[in-house]
């Protein structure tokens, strides 16, 4: 009994996904058809990069709202560079991502500006930059080189899209870093107990800046895939994705206060989020326009349950203890 309980409480996200999938099948048989699943997974992979990137910063107890703009910027830069040099087309966007992440990290750690506001400002700034580059209209180039096109459109055996492969690979690498590398563990330590981290010689600024850089770089990969898929760079690409990614991470069981979360959770959280819209587009009981309500309601229920569990499991007592000195 206890084991079952632990399994459920540590894998709420997975249970959630299974429920969503069951609902999906009930609503529409074709939901589990290979074509639809391919579609579903492909669309998850676009957002998924932001989600798994966000995992890093959330683990550190930070947040990154600038991802939406980084997403757009990377797409533009890729297309722009593709006209000149195919290798730079892949490298420059990633570098740009690293710079954005670095700036975020510095604003938060060195200038002590709250993460929420700091990244909001970078979001505005970068969005402005993209719009300036694009002249506020959708940016197109005449001939898109094949490698750039392939990034978002290549499908192996008509079933496995390259973006999905990249997404899974990225998730595995992130999981490895978080689990097996010191820098990954540092993120858990910094997010779990900043002071303890300092005492144990874990550099908080270094960890924080690294997390933000990784987050932005992963986001940029997502942005590049997206742009490759649609073939143009829209100055408004990715608007609202930051919230979507945060929702996915929270659904995946991470705590925004830091120290708790797994990339597998964010992976599943992303799948849940995209399943919602997928299912909504396939059923005709409830109009698709209601999908946001369901997302909101599910989020609300998940966090309420989480809070109730924490409150009951001695959260209260701890609070009293810290007060008692």
């Amino acid at each position: 009994m206890n084991k079952v309980k632990t399994f459920f409480s540590s894998n709420i996200a997975l249970v959630g996904l299974i429920i969503v999938l069951i609902i999906g099948v009930c609503v529409q048989r074709t939901f589990i058809s290979p074509e639809n699943l391919t579609n579903l997974l492909r669309s998850s992979s676009l957002m998924g990069f932001i989600g798994i990137g966000m995992t890093f910063v959330v683990l550190c107890g930070s947040i990154d709202l600038s991802v939406a703009s980084a997403f757009a910027l990377s797409g533009y830069l890729m297309l722009y560079m593709a006209q000149y040099n195919i290798i730079l087309a892949f490298i420059i966007p990633l570098l740009a991502g690293a710079v954005i992440g670095f700036i975020n990290g510095v604003l938060i750690e060195k200038l002590s500006i709250p993460a929420f506001i700091a990244t909001l400002a970078t979001q505005m700034f970068v969005r402005g930059l993209v719009q300036m580059f694009c002249n506020e209209v959708t940016y197109k180039i005449d001939v898109i080189p094949v490698p750039v096109l392939a990034l978002g459109r290549l499908t192996f055996g008509n079933l496995i899209p390259l973006p999905l492969l990249l997404f899974v690979a990225a998730t595995l690498i992130v999981a490895f870093v978080l689990k097996r590398r010191f820098i990954g563990r540092s993120m858990y330590i910094v997010g779990g107990n900043r002071e303890a981290a300092n005492m144990m010689g874990v550099s908080v600024p270094k960890t924080m800046i690294t997390a933000h850089i990784l987050c932005s770089v992963l986001t940029c990969i997502g942005g590049m895939i997206y742009t490759s898929r649609v073939g143009v760079a829209s100055p408004l690409a990715g608007t609202g994705y930051e919230m979507y990614a945060i929702a996915a991470v929270v659904l995946g069981g991470a705590k925004l206060t830091g120290g708790v979360g797994k990339v597998s959770g964010s992976f599943i959280g992303t799948l849940i989020m995209s399943s919602f819209s997928n299912i909504f587009s396939m059923q005709n009981i409830l109009d698709a326009v209601w999908s946001d309500v369901v997302v909101g309601a599910v989020l609300l229920i998940v966090i309420m349950v989480q809070a109730a569990v924490t409150l009951r499991s001695g959260g209260k007592k701890n609070k009293a203890q810290t007060g008692a000195v």
Partner: peptide, 18 residues
Amino acid sequence: LAILPMVVTLALRYAMRG
């Protein structure tokens, strides 16, 4: 419930817009 304001209002943001 001591839920982070950011998370609660994120959920409500979706719910109300939806």
